[in-house]
């Protein structure tokens, strides 16, 4: 349990996750109000990473449920382990024989067998999937439901039920109630409208691409080997690419990959050749790469021009400021 927001922030930072004030506040709130947290944002801004860092900071196990089209209860909740049941039946055949041998009629034998039914439908043969695991866990856990927007609406409705009271009924066993309420984090890439009901139950956090400053801090943290100068240039370039109309914008994780690539290639500066060689780390569509290359030829030239202008400005006396800050 975090005591205040700054503690959240430092704890996440210790997990190598740089949280903005907003993220830290919402994480703190989610924990205080014991509500699921729905995190939205473009792909690769660190939604899943936040969940991992949070669980790491709280020193709790992270149980992850990756959603996909056609995900159903047997994959999310539990499944009976047929094979194991079968194996046990085979191995216990003698024992069963002993048990049933003294019964005279078929009905009697069947009754006897029915009495032993519980053996075969016990927790022993229950294969817990992520949701059930989070519920039956002895220790408090974090449950990450990743990319909920990819699952179908029916699954979402089912999830709603689980999230509202954290209990599950298994017909053969009865109702299982959570010993500890897990911390629930849902992520969504917003490819599909989620239901109002689900949203209502969650706190909402929208993570956008970070500002240049924040991204630079992230790169420096994750790729400390990259020279500060180069890191700055790289981040600036990525920020520019995000302003373009591309099929897929480079994400933070791709920036990090790219920074690592630059380190690997031992690049000293972002010259044309390095860019051409490594651009595919950032951009994953042929069309985007072509567009970016067109921009880059302008980028390198434009950069020099800007610097030149700066120099000029320093020499001449600036005109009387129209609006000066009061402290000056």
């Amino acid at each position: 349990m975090f005591k205040d927001i700054s503690e959240v922030k430092s704890a996440l930072a210790a997990q190598q996750y740089i949280a903005t004030d907003e993220i830290a506040t919402v994480v703190y709130l989610a924990q205080k109000l014991q509500k699921p947290l729905l995190v939205e944002g473009p792909a690769g801004v660190g939604k899943t990473e936040l969940a991992k860092a949070w669980a790491g900071a709280a020193k709790q196990e992270l149980i992850r449920l990756q959603c996909y089209e056609g995900l159903d209860e047997t994959k999310a909740l539990y499944e009976w382990e047929y094979a194991k049941q079968m194996l046990y039946t085979q191995l216990l055949r003698d024992k069963l024989h002993d048990l049933l041998s003294d019964s005279k009629t078929l009905a009697e034998a069947a009754d006897k067998l029915a009495d032993e039914e519980d053996v075969f439908f016990s927790k022993r043969f229950l294969l817990p999937r992520p949701l059930l695991r989070a519920i039956v866990s002895e220790t408090p856990t974090h449950l990450l439901i990743d990319e909920i927007d990819r699952a179908d609406a029916e699954f979402e409705a089912f999830l709603l039920e689980v999230l509202s009271d954290f209990q599950i009924s298994v017909p053969e066993l009865g109702t299982i109630k959570a010993q500890h309420l897990p911390v629930v984090i849902l992520t969504s890439n917003n490819t599909r409208e989620l239901s109002e009901a689900l949203k209502r139950r969650c706190l909402y956090l929208y993570i956008d691409y970070p500002t240049a400053e924040a991204e630079l801090r992230i790169v420096k943290l994750k790729v400390p080997d990259l020279s500060p100068q180069l890191a700055k240039q790289a981040v600036e370039l990525v920020q520019r690419l995000r302003k373009l109309d591309l099929k897929k914008h480079p994400s933070v994780s791709e920036t990090i990959d790219w920074a690592r690539a630059l380190v690997m290639l031992n690049s000293k500066s972002l010259d044309q050749k390095t860019l051409e060689n490594t651009l595919t780390v950032l951009l994953k569509h042929e069309h985007d790469v072509m567009r970016a290359q067109r921009l880059l030829s302008e980028f390198t030239i434009g950069d020099e021009k800007e610097e030149g202008e700066d120099d000029d400005d320093d020499d001449t006396v600036p005109p009387l400021p129209r609006r000066s800050s009061p402290k000056r």
Partner: peptide, 18 residues
């Protein structure tokens, strides 16, 4: 800032409304 974040997380559930 925190106050804003708190209201935003609880009241706004759709990026369109941000």
């Amino acid at each position: 800032g925190m106050f804003r974040a708190a209201l935003r997380a609880t009241l706004v559930k759709d990026s369109v409304d941000v």
